[in-house]
Design a protein around this nucleic acid. Structure first.
Lengths: 233, 233
DNA sequence: TGTGACACAAAAGTCTGACTTTTTGTTCCC
DNA sequence: GGGAACAAAAAGTCAGACTTTTGTGTCACA
């Protein structure tokens, strides 16, 4: 799905990463590079490179004479897209989906407000196109098509905000939306109210109405939170 | 300040990282591992480990027969605390400080609202203590002491939100606050209004008043945005 | 003149084995 | 019982040889 092992070290990473984030090696566990090299049938240098990457994600800590120790969960770089993907693929996917959705509901209204002020005509056009695509695929079990337009819609809003930090959250939002469609809820067609909100949001951004864009996005977020039972009805 | 070179690879990283994020090697630039090994007087394996880390931050891409290429800015993992530190230490610090402050102003009100609902008695006590510390150091050029309490205050709020993604933003907020005190503005004592807002926020959280906590944090954020001339007065 | 196949070379990727350094645990002496 | 010396374990480092991929240039053929 992401990038398939362009090297041995990537293969090791694709095994160790999910194993650690998935709790297979709980915090405090100790790995030894020699043992890993044997297990994966690669040289120690390959293992070392993989460990260095895990270390940069704060998933593990490598210390002499003791080995490679798994760090406590609170220290992980949970904003690393790779870590997010590993965790979403693992056992605590629901929990992960919830914290990410709460994050979205804080970020996206602000981003939409800024987008209304800064969006280029091209971005407005693309946004409207996505909204139309969502309408077109909102009925008849075209979930994949709907997801595609939904992801693009939110990505454009985040990019149009002009804020780099918001823009880089596009991938996270994409993962969350994909996760929602593929695993959690949404067995039926999407909520018509949500579709309408997106159409109106595209309008608000086009008209430069920051306050309305923000409020509409907040309503979209409330819907997403309800889907995960985070808010009481 | 962070962690001083516990190994050769870390030393290489501390040179290459800031050089790349600082624009010394603009996107598209090509580095060769052999050359880097010579320049830093280390073996190739050490360079490879450093490059692997840079690759995991999406700062560079390593391809056979061509070398290690610096990736376009839009692809960098700007949420990586290490990358944030490197960029804050570099030339576009002001720009960086602005996007991070906008991020803060989106996240922290939501976090404060959640904190009002979920904070433990211990967290409430710690929060009040920090607010008192801020009051005590708010006059007489005790900027370092004030900064210390300010950082702790915001860190506690983010942690008390109960949301892991919010909690992990504590380090970023700490960097932003430290940057503001040490470089940007604040040559004089902090704004008394801001101090009062923090005291009242601690109250609101203690009383479990989510709406008021959110609103007070929003006001604190507005103050921070004004300091950087992001909002018109 | 254009185009495709092929060969060459450059750079990263991998492996191995030897050596160094740090750190921890143990033992031994006072 | 406490402290100092010692031994071992594991990561860290290095050098060199080899493999694999891939961009580029060349040459023949249409």
């Amino acid at each position: 799905m992401t990038d398939q092992a362009r090297g041995l070290h990537a293969r090791v990473l694709e095994n160790l990463g999910p194993a650690i984030t998935g709790g297979e090696y709980p915090p405090g566990s100790v790995l030894r590079t020699d043992e890993l090299a044997q297990r994966f049938e690669v040289s120690r240098s390959v293992v070392r490179e993989a460990v260095r990457v895990l270390e940069s994600m704060h998933l593990v800590e490598s210390r002499r004479r003791v080995g490679v120790t798994v760090r406590p969960t609170e220290e992980w770089n949970v904003y690393d897209p790779q870590v997010i993907r590993w965790r979403l693929a693992g056992a605590d996917r629901p929990r992960q989906l919830r914290s990410l959705t709460v994050l979205r509901s804080a970020i996206e209204p602000a981003a939409a407000g800024l987008a209304a002020q800064h969006a280029t005509p091209e971005q407005c056009a693309a946004l409207t196109e996505c909204a139309l695509g969502m309408v077109a695929t909102s009925r008849g079990q075209q979930l994949e098509g709907y997801l595609f337009h939904d992801i693009n819609f939110h990505r454009i809003v985040l990019n149009a905000s002009g804020n780099e930090m918001f823009a880089r959250l596009g991938d996270v939002v994409a993962e969350v939306l994909a996760g929602r469609t593929h695993h959690q809820v949404m067995f039926e067609d999407p909520d018509p109210a949500a579709v309408t909100l997106h159409v109106r949001l595209a309008e608000a951004v086009r008209e430069g109405d920051a306050a309305r864009a923000e409020e509409l996005t907040r309503e979209i977020a409330v819907g997403a939170l309800h889907e995960l039972d985070i808010l009481a009805p």
